[in-house]
Write a protein that binds this DNA or RNA. Structure first.
Length: 873
RNA sequence: GCCCGGAUGGCGGAAUUGGUAGACGCAGCGGACUUAAAAUCCGCUAUGGUUAUCCAUGUGCCGGUUCAAGUCCGGCUCCGGGCACCA
């Protein structure tokens, strides 16, 4: 060993050793219990960021730990390689996105290897490999045939910057998830959808059966699915209207409500601006122009404005009326700006007495308020006296024969009656919408269908897959997405009739690729099917998945859906992809902003002055590292300065995995110093213990030896217990602090003292070896280096995890705490397992305690064996 | 508005089922080594009290249960996150 710790030298050495010895390669082995550990794969943006390093360092601890515990561990890595940044880079640099992507992958693979992660690199693939998306296209065709994918005309989200549509899950607060500054517009377009709504109930039910997931994520998914139980109610129109779609007639408006009990109080009807009836009902009347103008205006407003809290409730009368099925009342039909087309039927029965929005609306437009639910135990509501809607349950009133009935009970009664009379019935709704998966972009998996003027939509036959992206394409800002212009690529013969047809030019949402990549890792090179049956059912489901909380309803919901689809298509036999999930905390850093020059790199800011102009800067709060805020720290720089082991140890020691980390250059000194101390201790001791073997430790009874030997022996056992426990409980920061304690004990242990030098050496070596074994998952290079300096020929990767024997930690005395009235007044040594009575005797005999109880009456003495005695006076 | 989390020294964080609050580390202070600095090593470090091995106070606030509360119960405050005109 060099006297100086030099990670730049030892880390690459061990990395190539692991690669050469194929240490991390795994195969199906039915004699061993499998463990599939997965971290969310990265988008190859160019360089790893600190969040990646944290994610993968957490995973690597568990992976290496499970190997040492005897599991057959699958730990793969790959690339989420399709997506917009590659395409934008292509436009800017006029290179094919593939070239940009591959270059980034090569670079980032190198970065991952320099961090020493235990991946089986033979299983690596990128989602932009045609051998990968070929199988995605095959599944798409299966789904098409099963009716799980459909082209629908709908109002969809459009981002002007992405130049494409977006799924609901990709719209955050009305803004594009990629471009936080770009408002999403609504456009009516014909697009491809995955029928995820068919799985709404199953996806919801299974959230109750995933105990290994954080409750928070399950809750977010439940909210997103948004189940509500209510009724459909038909309202007859006053007169029929012609239906332009079917050439038939429209005679009713159907609404969905969770408050059928308030039906007697429905005094008008509200339609969404996107509702087709707005036009139909007003056509040819004097309301036509006003309705069209109102609808156009509302529709052109962006989502964020429409969902703002102070968005004023507005509407306009369509000129049409419908009839309340219970009261026969003539109800005017309005278009209202607060009614959403995407929820329920886009039409709402308005009950101003019992819905605050309807109440406000009725005030503005002078519509009748009829209370039908009476607050229990209070006087009946009086419409003229109401200042707000009464939304709670109560007792029915103004509801004919049902007056006096409990409103909750009435819900069932009225729904049953409507169903019996064919005027409605029970209905369940979900907030979840179908997943819009088509994108008007080049760099994605092509949707494998052709459009034939004769046969319509025709899937590409499976033996002609993949429908590969063209390799020879010019990229130009003026043109944008080149795909729709590539006549040679688009013009094909219809696979069905052979006549000229056109290829679909939309590609799939990149979230489709990430919905099943983890299943492909089981047999990444299988070329006859998406998965090899034996492999996928040996390894899957993923036992532990680790990634960011930001995917709580995106990737994690899509993946659950896709797995269920694959199951129903007969590809897999399990229901859920991820048994356990850890959402790791983000790595944060404060941002620094100059009022004139915007965000600045904190490390370039001195004395709170802008490095450009010298003006005072604002120190922002700690937030997620991002390029736009310039608050990033490049992990590669950190690895160059401190070494991979130190960066890993810092990220693991700073906080528990699920908590945020405030990046601090200061605090990396702790782990850095610890690693140097470990190195220095090894350098100074290795030669002295070379001639003894740790296995001789079994020959000695250290518990009977000198007290310092006994203490090190017990500490070593206790550390095995604590580190194991804490890894199992996912608090790696405290696992590391336990290792630090054992190290401190090792460093304090005097190798020279005692009566039997050989025994001391054996003890020290045995303790050091166990320490190194447990250090391995955290600092693998350091552990390997010292392990080999001790004479080992095998990799420390395959060491057995230190066992723990309770009997080996048996001390014969403990520190007894003596309290008077619950306050600690003395500590004395007492024999372990002393009886309560003995402890009481010891406590009362103590001089200091006697001072405290002198002249006072002892009311009670409580003794807790091996802990404390409390004297109550 | 609704639903989840949180709140412990100057800082990150410990404290399995109520039983020694502050493990481990950072920063700080003092000392050793050094011509000097860095590094390293040793010691101190919750707050207050004329800082002895003593006393008092102390885990966001108010109250309760208990021999004993960071931990349990009731009522708040603040912070973070998710959802939100969902009929």
């Amino acid at each position: 060993m060099d006297s100086k710790y030099n990670p730049q030298e030892i880390e690459p050495k061990w990395q190539s050793f692991w690669e050469k010895e194929r240490v991390f390669e795994v195969e199906v082995d039915k004699s061993k219990e499998k463990y599939y550990l997965l971290e969310m794969f990265p988008y190859p943006s160019g360089r790893l960021h600190m969040g990646h390093v944290r994610n993968y360092s957490i995973g690597d601890v568990v992976s290496r730990y499970k190997v040492m515990r005897g599991f057959n561990v699958l730990h793969p890595m790959g690339w989420d390689a399709f997506g917009l940044p590659a395409e934008n880079a292509a436009l800017e640099n006029r290179v094919h996105p593939n070239e940009w992507t591959r270059r980034n992958i090569d670079y980032m693979r190198g970065q991952l290897k320099r961090l020493g992660y235990s991946y089986d690199w033979r299983r690596e693939f990128a989602t932009c490999d045609p051998e990968y998306y070929k199988w995605e296209q095959a599944v798409f065709i299966d789904m098409l045939e099963k009716g799980l994918v459909e082209k629908q005309k709908a109002w969809v989200n459009w981002c002007d910057k992405c130049n494409t549509v977006l799924a609901n899950e990709q719209v955050e607060d009305g803004y594009c998830w990629r471009h936080g500054d770009t408002l999403v517009r609504q456009k009516e377009l014909s697009q491809w959808f995955f029928k995820i709504t068919r799985y709404a109930e199953e996806l919801l039910e299974w959230t109750e059966k995933l105990p290994g997931w954080p409750e928070k994520v399950l809750l977010m998914q439940r909210n997103w699915i948004g189940k509500s139980v209510g009724s459909m109610i038909h309202f007859k129109l006053e007169r029929p209207y012609p239906d332009p779609e079917t050439d038939g007639e429209i005679d009713r408006v159907v609404v969905y409500t969770t408050r059928p009990d308030t039906l007697f109080g429905a005094t008008f009807m509200s339609l969404a601006a996107e509702h087709p009836y707005c036009e139909i009902l007003s056509r040819g009347t004097d309301r036509e122009k006003a309705v069209r103008e109102f609808c156009d205006r509302v529709r052109s407003e962006d989502k964020i404005k429409r969902s703002a809290e102070d968005y004023e409730k507005e509407g306009t009368f369509t000129g049409a009326y419908c009839i309340n099925p219970m009261t026969g009342r003539r109800m005017p039909i309005y278009v209202a700006n607060f009614v959403l087309m995407e929820y329920g039927t886009g039409a709402v029965m308005a009950v101003p007495a019992h819905d605050q929005r309807d109440f406000e609306f009725s005030r503005v437009y002078g519509l009748d308020i009829v209370p039908v639910v009476q607050p229990p135990g209070q006087e009946a509501l009086e419409a003229s006296a109401m200042t707000e809607a009464y939304e709670e349950p109560g007792v029915m009133m103004n509801s004919g024969e049902y007056d006096g009935m409990d409103s909750l009970e009435f819900k069932k009664v009225i729904t049953d009656r409507l169903a019996r009379e064919n005027r409605g019935g029970a209905s369940t709704h979900y907030r979840l919408r179908d997943w819009l998966i088509s994108r008007q972009r080049f760099w994605g998996a092509p949707i494998p269908v052709v459009h034939c003027p004769e046969c319509g939509v025709v899937p590409v036959p499976k033996d002609q897959l993949p429908v590969a992206l063209p390799a020879e394409v010019e990229f130009d800002f003026e043109v944008g997405n080149p795909l729709p212009r590539l006549d040679w690529w688009i013009n094909v013969d219809c696979p069905k009739c052979g006549r000229p047809a056109r290829r679909e030019t939309d590609t799939m949402d990149t979230f489709v690729e990430s919905s099943w990549y983890y299943e492909r890792y089981a047999s990444p090179h299988c070329d006859t099917a998406p998965f090899d049956d034996g492999e996928v059912h040996y390894w899957l489901p993923v036992d532990q998945y680790i990634g960011g909380i930001e995917h709580a309803v995106l990737h994690l919901l899509y993946s659950r859906f896709f797995t269920k689809v694959l199951r129903d298509l007969g590809y897999v036999k399990f229901d859920e992809p991820f048994t356990r999930l850890l959402t790791q905390g983000m790595v944060l850093k404060e941002s620094v902003k100059c009022p004139e020059h915007g965000y600045q790199f904190p490390q370039e800011v001195k004395d709170y002055k802008c490095p450009v102009c010298g003006k005072d800067v604002e120190i922002g709060r700690k937030e997620k590292m991002s390029k736009s805020k310039k608050n990033t720290v490049d992990p590669e720089e950190m690895v160059k300065t401190f070494g991979a082991d130190t960066v890993r140890l810092y990220l693991l020691f700073e906080a528990p995995p699920n908590k945020e980390i405030d990046w601090s250059e200061n605090r990396i000194q702790g782990p850095n110093r610890f690693i140097h101390r470990v190195w220095n201790l090894a350098v100074s001791r290795v030669e002295k213990i070379k001639d003894v073997s740790a296995s001789d430790a079994a020959k000695y009874d250290f518990l009977a030896g000198p007290s310092d030997e006994k203490e090190l022996f017990i500490k070593t056992h206790e550390t095995a217990r604590d580190v194991t426990d804490r890894i199992e409980r996912w608090t790696f920061n405290t696992a590391i602090s336990a290792l630090m304690e054992q190290f401190n004990a090792l460093a304090d242990f005097d190798l020279e003292g005692g009566d039997d030098p050989a025994r001391r050496k054996v003890l020290f070596r045995w303790s050091l070896e166990r320490f190194l074994a447990m250090l391995g998952p955290f600092c693998p290079h350091l552990a390997e280096e010292i392990w080999s300096a001790l004479g080992a020929k095998e990799s420390a990767f395959h060491l057995a995890w230190p066992d723990f024997d309770e009997a080996m930690t048996a001390r014969d005395t403990f520190e007894l705490v003596i309290q008077v009235n619950g306050k600690v007044r003395a500590r004395v040594n007492a024999p372990v397992d002393a009886k309560k009575e003995e402890l009481e005797k010891i406590a009362l005999a103590n001089e200091r305690i006697q001072d405290f109880i002198k002249g006072r009456e002892i009311r009670k003495v409580i003794a807790v064996p091996n802990k404390l005695v409390n004297v109550v006076v």
